[in-house]
């Protein structure tokens, strides 16, 4: 039971990561392979604020979201200068640099990471097991709501416009640089919150938890489920995160799965298993309509 709850908690956290990357890549078209960096920044911010500065979880959680959002906005600056394919490389680079900073700057605990991170408490009660899962699920629902609402706002329309054609977006009054930075900041902020939850759930953070392969993993969840949709990234995260954790023996091949999924989806179903007009989604819709 406890094992399942912990898998479900991970799945919720990764669903948030996938949804947040979806805002950046699915909505705004900015392909990032460094998303785990934002995850890590949120985790480290929350860990440092609670363990080293003695804050309690809740303000640290909010601060982690804000800090990661601001840092994410700055780390989005390369997107203003480089073309799409180079942005992929630049974001990969950012991921490596962020990990190196965690690893080699002793202020951040070095390779030993940060340990002794406490679970959140509410009115004197420590949130653990199902209660922590409830917190993670609540944050997932919040992220879903933000994603859904954003896509219906003028800002969401501006992001879609710049994804489709940057010149045409400028020609209708969208400041492309500004909205790219917004996309990075929002995406990073949400991932930062996921990082905070992760740190407090696990009780410790190490640089390698946020390595480049994790970025690949998050991207493969988004692509597997269906980029640009809400259902896709969530389902992708639950399948590709929870299943390997559950089937322990598969867990060892996790990275091979992430890589394989990316290659296969790109080849055969680039819109994802649940993307609009995908084979499975069309089938499901026909079932529902009958």
């Amino acid at each position: 039971m406890g094992y399942l709850i912990s898998i479900a908690t991970f799945a919720c956290i990764w669903a948030v990561l996938a949804l947040s990357l979806n805002i950046l890549t699915g909505y705004a078209g900015q392909v990032s392979l460094g998303h785990a960096a934002f995850f890590g920044i949120g985790a480290y911010a929350s860990a440092m604020l609670t363990v080293k500065a003695g804050w309690s979880f809740w303000p640290a959680f909010v601060a982690a979201i804000l800090i990661t959002g601001v840092v994410g906005g700055f780390l989005g600056l390369p997107s203003l200068r480089v073309r799409h394919d180079f942005l992929v490389l630049a974001t990969m680079g950012i991921n490596f640099v962020v990990i190196a900073i965690f690893k080699y700057v002793s202020f951040f605990g070095g390779a030993l990471g940060i340990i002794g991170i406490k679970k959140p408490a509410l009115f004197g009660w420590t949130l653990r097991g199902p209660w922590f899962l409830a917190l993670a699920a609540l944050y997932l629902v919040l992220t879903l709501w933000i994603s859904a609402y954003l896509s219906r706002t003028w800002a969401g329309l501006a992001l879609t416009a710049l994804r489709e054609d940057e010149d045409a977006a400028e020609a209708v009054g969208v400041s492309v640089p500004r909205f790219k930075i917004y996309a990075f900041a929002i995406s990073a902020a949400l991932a930062g919150g996921a990082g905070s939850l992760y740190a407090h759930f696990l009780g410790s953070v190490f640089p390698d938890h946020f390595a480049f392969v994790e970025s690949i993993g998050i991207m493969s969840m988004v692509v597997f489920g269906g980029i640009g949709t809400l259902r896709g990234p969530v389902v992708g995260a639950f399948i590709l995160k929870a299943l390997p954790e559950y089937l322990r023996f598969v867990g060892d091949y996790r990275y091979a799965i992430y890589g394989g999924v990316l290659v296969l989806m790109m080849l055969f179903q680039p819109q994802g298993i649940l993307g609009d007009n995908s084979w499975l989604w069309n089938k499901i819709r026909r079932r529902i309509n009958d």
Partner: peptide, 27 residues
């Protein structure tokens, strides 16, 4: 340079947001 994946109407709507885009009201 159409916004290809958007509907024709949404292409026009995208042009109607010019006054709101600079403000955080857009969110």
């Amino acid at each position: 340079k159409p916004f290809g994946e958007l509907s024709v109407r949404d292409n026009v709507l995208a042009g109607m947001g010019h006054n709101i885009y600079p403000s955080l009201q857009a969110f």
